[in-house]
Every structure is written in structure tokens, then in C-alpha cells.
Design a protein around this nucleic acid. Sequence first.
DNA 1: CAGCATCCGGAAGGATACTG
DNA 2: CAGTATCCTTCCGGATGCTG
Lengths: 138, 138
Amino acid sequence: MGKKLYNISVEATLEVIGGKWKCVILCHLTHGKKRTSDLKRLMPRITQKMLTQQLRELEDDGIVKRIVYNQVPPKVEYELSDYGSSLTPILDSLCMWGETHIIKEYGDKFAVLEENVLNRRDDEVLVDELMEKEVEMT
Amino acid sequence: MGKKLYNISVEATLEVIGGKWKCVILCHLTHGKKRTSDLKRLMPRITQKMLTQQLRELEDDGIVKRIVYNQVPPKVEYELSDYGSSLTPILDSLCMWGETHIIKEYGDKFAVLEENVLNRRDDEVLVDELMEKEVEMT
DNA sequence: CAGCATCCGGAAGGATACTG
DNA sequence: CAGTATCCTTCCGGATGCTG
């Protein structure tokens, strides 16, 4: 393997999760196993190509597990590996900081969440989190 | 301001610290105020153009403060703003995960640290951290 | 449904020279 | 020393069509 040289250890982290969509994908996976079609719906702007590419890289780095069901039509699921789960606290922190930042910038965080996010069925954790915060603020 | 739409809150975080060099710069700044020339030395691979660009964006987002001394030759320092300091726990976690990852991948973490990192004078915190871990492992 | 191959435009980022 | 401006190359990533 070609050893890479780093000037600071965070560069090693960025090499793994620094891809354009990787943190977003991983954040969704912290909420549980997801099918390819689930991920597509959760990330309407990602292209098929990028989704597969980023998932492959995460798989190669041992961050996510790819579960293939041998059936027709095909079914593939992705979930955090044990090693990938060590990123969960970081991913949660990144999400929480984002929520705070959105509030700081826009006041009402719902103003910047797309409808598909609020209407989705299988990943209501975020919405629940936001609802809780909303209650705290009243 | 043009409101951006997000599908998950981490996207807001990435818009602020997702730039190619931003996390690296911020990690260095968690160790204290730095002159432009310091940052250049700490990041030998970054170009002048990118350094300035990333710093400007971080400044615009209220993450870093730019301190200009009116003197000749010019002297400029950068440091985390109060708001930027709210990222410190995340940045520390990212660094720590990177160290663990380096150990997992290469065994000896010193094998992948460039010499300029080990020889530098003003940012020995990382080295100290590594030394401590080394001791723990023996 | 999940994924691959191909083409292609545009943004990202490097190199260089110049300014105060 | 710190920063700007310009040019130029690279390659990321989108769009499309096809396969099992």
C-alpha cells in the first residue's frame, strides 16, 4: 500500500469521510440500515453515479457494510460497520451543530428543510429531534 | 439572503466547514492564533490562493477572526472566533479519530507524519499528544 | 431495483507574476 | 510578509443510456 503522508491527523479522517456526500450518507445511516432507494429519496440531489461511488469508497474503507439479497428484483442494503459506528458521535455532533447554525442563520429551521424531509416516513428521527427542540424553545 | 434548502441538517455544517482545507486550517487554529506564514508552514501543500480563499470564507461565516497589524512588513493573524470555538469539540474528535485510524492502517503513526510536522516549534501539541499515546501503548 | 459505462461541460484548484 | 490577478489545466460530477 502506498503510504500517504499527513501534516496533521485530521487529514486521515478527511480522506475517509471528506467526500462530497459521505457525511450526509453516514448521517442517514446512523438512523439505521437503508436500501439504495431509501438513500436516493433521502438525498434527492445526489446522482446515481455519486451515490454508488461514495458508498463503494466507504465500503472499501470498512465504514459501511453492503448487504446483497439474491432475489429479483434486486435488493441491497447499507449499514454502518462496527468500525464505522465509531464515527457516530462525530456525525451526531455535526448534525447538531448544523441545526444550531440553521437557527442562528434563519431563525426558523423549518424554513430551510425541504418538504420531502418533513413528509418522509422511514426516517422521522430528525423531525422528532426538531420537534423536541421546538418545544424546548417555547 | 438566498435561503438554501437542506435535506438534513449536517448539510448546513458542511457548507461552513466542508471546504477542502477548512477542517485542517481550523484544527491548526484550535492550537492557538496563527500568522499566515505559520499556516503555510503547517500546510506545505496548500497554495497561497487556496489558503486565502478558505480563510476568507471562514471569516465571512464568522468562524475565524482576522487580525491585521498596520506595520511594515505586514503581519496578519487568524484565530477562532467565539462562534468558531463552538466547533472545537468536533475538530478535536476529528483529529482523534484520524490518529486512531492511522494506527489501525499503518500501525506506527509516526511513519505517516511528515518531518516538518515533527520538527516544527510552534505547534507541538500534536506531537505531545502522540507521545502520550505512545506511552499508553507500551 | 441496483448498478455500470460513456461522454462532456464547468467549476475547482495550481502556477506564475505582480502590488503595497 | 500578505495578498491579488491572471491564465490554464485537471478532474469532478452531471446526464444519459444500457444491463442483469
